[in-house]
């Protein structure tokens, strides 16, 4: 790898592309986290809306309305599951009828965050409430578990009774399809790959074009001029391009002219000496042969 182009292009292309790749990966990671956080926040808000919407039906112990609300939400496009279970983990309402009256495993993802200790936690941040998993239909799901807290209206209602000491009455578990989010991330990833390739092409292409225009072509012209000058052709002007090459060209031109002048002088001296020798030769020969 002795050419100027290779020596100039390789380190620049490597440094620029490598740095852009590192930045793109970190940027992708930041954007992914931001998108995930906003999706989780949206889902937490949605869970809050559902809990508020079902509040009246719960206070009235209107199980039919509650079942209808849950069924209607479950039929919505993008809703993978929605269920409400009581404090013991028994599913009371679910968009999937076969889940009703089933016990939820407290060690399962989404439950373990609160039930990791003997006394379950009652307050979790939005990130702890969320979980990302692939369900039995092989769909990516982003799910939220939102606690349904005991209120004075619940513990004093006539219809049914919850002790006031019980802080959490049950949990709403809603899972939305994460496919749109995943598709957005895949598209974003590909766009970044294309961006990296474009940066690489632009860097390598730009450096190559500039080198060829400013360095390689003037050097080629200088080499051609030097070869011509060596053969004795000093008629053509020295090559231009960049200051340094012009300077070398002018020096070469000066050297070639001086060489030409010296050669002419030498030639003249030689011819003079030949003439001198020719003039002296007959006289010498006449002295050698006197008679």
């Amino acid at each position: 790898m002795k050419s100027i182009a290779a020596k100039a292009v390789v380190p620049v292309a490597l440094a620029v592309t490598g740095f852009v790749v590192v930045c793109c990966i970190l940027l992708y990671s930041f954007i992914k986290n931001d998108l995930l956080n906003s999706s989780i926040q949206r889902e937490v808000n949605l869970a809050g809306i559902i809990v508020k919407s079902t509040r009246h039906a719960m206070l009235q112990a209107d199980r039919e309305s509650l079942r209808n609300i849950i069924d209607n939400i479950g039929e919505q496009n993008g809703v993978e599951h929605v269920r409400i279970f009581n404090e013991t983990g028994l599913v009371m309402f679910s968009a999937a009828p076969e889940e009703v009256s089933q016990l939820v495993d407290k060690k399962a993802a989404g439950c373990i965050a609160c039930h990791s200790t003997d006394i379950p936690a009652t307050n979790l941040g939005p990130m702890e409430q969320s979980r990302w998993f692939t369900n039995q239909k092989n769909h990516n799901v982003l799910a939220i578990t939102a606690p349904i807290y005991n209120e004075p209206g619940c513990s004093t209602a006539d219809c049914h009774f919850h002790p006031p000491t019980l802080k959490v009455l049950g949990t709403l578990d809603i899972g939305l399809s994460a496919e749109p989010l995943r598709d957005s991330l895949v598209t974003l990833g590909w766009r970044m790959v294309v961006f990296c390739i474009m940066v690489l092409i632009l860097t390598v292409g730009g450096v190559c074009a500039l080198l060829r225009r400013n360095i390689l072509l003037p050097i080629t012209n200088l080499v051609a001029y030097a070869n011509a000058a060596t053969r004795g052709n000093t008629d053509q002007p020295p090559p231009g391009g960049i200051d340094e090459i012009e300077l070398i060209g002018q020096s070469l031109h000066g050297l070639a002219l001086r060489l030409e002048k010296k050669q002419a002088e030498l030639e003249m001296l030689r011819s003079k000496s030949r003439e001198g020798a020719a003039v002296h030769k007959p006289s010498i020969s006449s002295t050698e042969n006197p008679g």
């Binding site: 380190p11 490597l14 440094a15 592309t17 490598g18 740095f19 790749v21 590192v22 990966i25």
Partner: peptide
């Protein structure tokens, strides 16, 4: 990626 770039350079 950072390591490969730096160490290759």
């Amino acid at each position: 990626a950072a390591g490969i770039t730096i160490l290759t350079l």
